[in-house]
Amino acid sequence: MLAPFCKNCINLKLRGVTDNTIDPSIDRIQTAGIPILKKFLAGDNDVVLTICKRGAAPLGGGEIHFKCPISRNLKTIQMQDSGMVKRIRGTACSIRVSPAIANRIVESAKSVLLKFLPDVYIYIDHRRGSTSGKSPGFGVTLTADTTREVFFSGQAFSPLMTTGSLPCIPEDLGKEAATKLLDEIHRNGCIDSPFQSMTAAFMALGKKDVCKITMGPLTPVTIQFLRDLRVFFGIVFKIEPIKEEDKILPQVCLTCLGIGYTNISKRTL
């Protein structure tokens, strides 16, 4: 979130857990989060996030490379229409487990999604050896791409195996991810829900122009985040539900006047 405001371009090598059940997975960040960041950055920016190693929940051991340019100030954008979902892509990863598991996940996820859209393709990312981190796990992240360059995402990952817990069935995971994706699509908005707060931050840090973005129903995090933004920057968002012919849709429209933040640490030559 802070990467665009550094003094120099960020080129990070991060190690740790890449996939777990409670946080957005790295794939989700890559496919749904990075495009949002790119939208706010002006010019030809090369925000790169590459997954070198994957690491599942308890021990991690994953490694990603993140590269982000710096910018003087963020673009002010307006996003009202989320468009229609035109394709669904995804990554099913199996870390230190049998490669067949990924196939099973894909199978089940596709069984759900193909009922809605024929253009579904789920990549299989089987990791073993040095690129697979320290603990086993498997999961899937699905991303729906719309005609307006909006990305929705749904994910599922195998929970931690403790003694006595029920085994996790890959088919269920696939189905769960697909359902979550459909949920996300149903919620609509132009921003994938885990990245709402990030988007809000970028909106607030923008130029002194009106920024307007339609989002799905706000997550609790976002709500808290908006409050924090008010405390910190004194910025208040105009939040109004979308209305469509006397019907109130669950989507909300966040509007704000940026605080006009500029990256004062950047050097102008």
């Binding site: 409670i22 697909a178 359902t179 995090v221």
Partner: peptide
Amino acid sequence: QEESVFYPMEILRDW
């Protein structure tokens, strides 16, 4: 906040 980056888990609709 930490816990709920996602929506609170509701019973997923059977799409």
